[in-house]
Nucleic acid binder design. Structure first.
Length: 406
RNA sequence: GCGCCGGUCGAAUAGCGGCCAUUUCAGGAGACUGUAAAUCUCCCGCCUUCGGGCAUCGUCGGUUCGAGUCCGACCCGGCGCA
């Protein structure tokens, strides 16, 4: 994009090319919930992202490896990513049992303090399941309470066994409620962990190179993760530090203010080397993509489309709708009239709403297909708009319809 | 006709003299951003300035400082005996 950080490009992986910008579908436990890989492919997804911590707990990275690696075990032939487990340092740590989100919401008129406080309240009987030290993170399994220690080296070893095309350095995702002093401390620690992740990755690459060619399965790429919370100086410092290390690409992690996510991302992407891919971890919602992409992000992953699908929220060009709303009981048209997803080509919203209301499992499949199709193709349309030099028009039109409704 | 049970917010329930009439489902609305999540939150008699106020446990009376809870009569339902 002329005069901007945004770009369209390609990421080559051992399992194929990703045309960017691209939305990477989340399949935490080596499955995109409610969908078969054929359905994921058919709706337009290019790649999936699984999670190291979850796969380590179950079925265990040895099982994944014995099944032939992540691609084989889940029957996904395209590119794959694994997150390092760094997000679980947050979600099972300070955020556990609370309503704290990695995005701080736009605060309305002076209730900020009250909301912050109520958000930080932890439910009784839910102590944190993650404890962070210099060496790594001690997790208590959410499944059986057993203790598991993740160091940067351990995360990389597990990710090596799982065998995704792109893996992430072990980092600490911090909370938006943490103060600057803590953000700085955590960021510095993440930088040290990044160096350790990279060092262990290099060792494993050398070991792997000794394997016979057929067993090698191509080279695994390692992305370093930028942190620094909502602070410009920390974000820039982190981007410079991580950007100077010999990673194959970068993840942008941690917490943001919802309202200026684009600004925060620009601080970072101005510093990161231009020639390497940048993945914005855990984002986002439709409006987030425009801001992040024009400020230089290439790939994204987010649980929102699939989780919200299962919980009854559907994306439409005119904004999100709640499938359980009474008015949809007699809506005898597709979720969106001109949507080309499998769900909209074959079913009425009345039927899908009925399935959801009666808790039929097919509801999850049909709503997940629609939401993922919507998000994957939204990012694809942004890519095409960049290539056609119509990004600004597309952004304006889309956001107007999305915010104002029909 | 006699006897025994039982009538609680749409359904099913708890409640055995004094917390705010409980919980589940159904119903209504909302939340969800690198998945602890087919999860969670709120509402669900009426009014409300959102602090609360007023009702209400089949009906009508009674006992009591105080009754969904105890007593009496009646109404309704089930079962049993005539």
């Amino acid at each position: 994009m002329f005069g901007k950080l945004g770009r369209a490009g390609k990421i080559e992986t051992p399992h194929g090319t990703i045309n960017t910008p691209a939305f990477i579908v989340v399949g935490t436990k080596a499955t995109v919930k409610a969908l078969t890989p054929e359905q994921v492919k058919e709706l337009g997804a290019q790649a999936v992202l699984a999670n190291t911590y979850h796969l380590y707990l179950e079925p265990g990275e040895k099982i994944v490896k014995a099944c032939g690696g992540l691609h084989k075990i889940m029957n996904w032939s395209g590119p794959t990513f694994t997150d390092s487990g760094g997000f679980q340092a947050f979600s099972l740590g300070v955020a556990f049992g609370t309503t704290i989100s990695k995005l701080s919401k736009p605060q309305s008129n002076g209730f900020e303090e009250r909301e912050r406080q109520s958000e930080s309240v932890r439910s009784e009987g839910m102590p944190p399941l993650a404890k962070i030290t210099e060496d790594g993170v001690m997790f208590k399994s959410y499944r059986d309470g057993g203790e598991h220690f993740f160091s940067p080296e351990k995360s990389i070893e597990i990710q090596n066994s799982i065998g995704a095309d792109i893996i992430f350095a072990f980092d600490e995702c911090t909370s938006p409620t943490a103060d600057k002093q803590y953000q700085k401390e955590a960021m510095d620690r993440t930088h040290r962990w990044a160096a350790r992740s990279l060092a262990r990755h290099r060792e494993l690459q050398i070991e792997n190179a000794k394997l016979k060619f057929e067993e090698r399965k191509g080279k695994q790429a390692l992305f370093g993760v930028v942190q620094g919370g909502r602070f410009e100086d920390l974000r820039k410092e982190s981007a410079k530090t991580i950007g100077a290390m010999d990673f194959d690409g970068f993840g942008i992690g941690g917490s943001f203010d919802k309202q200026d996510i684009g600004t925060a991302v620009s601080w970072i992407n101005e510093e990161l080397p231009e020639g390497k891919p940048r993945h914005l971890l855990g984002i986002g919602e439709p409006e987030d993509f425009f801001l992040a992409i024009e400020n230089g992000c290439d790939t994204f992953d987010c649980v929102a489309p699939t989780r919200q699908a299962r919980n009854g929220t559907l994306y439409t060009r005119a904004g999100k709708i709640h499938i359980d709303n009474t008015k949809y009981r007699e809506y005898f048209s597709p979720i969106e009239a001109d949507c080309t997803c499998y769900t909209c080509r074959n079913y009425t919203l009345a039927y899908v709403a009925y399935l959801a209301r009666t808790k039929e499992l097919l509801a999850h499949t049909l709503t997940s297909i629609h939401n993922l199709h919507f998000i994957v193709h939204l990012v694809e349309k942004i890519r095409l708009a960049i290539l056609a030099d119509t990004f600004n028009e597309f952004k304006e039109t889309f956001l107007k319809d999305y915010r104002n409704g029909k």
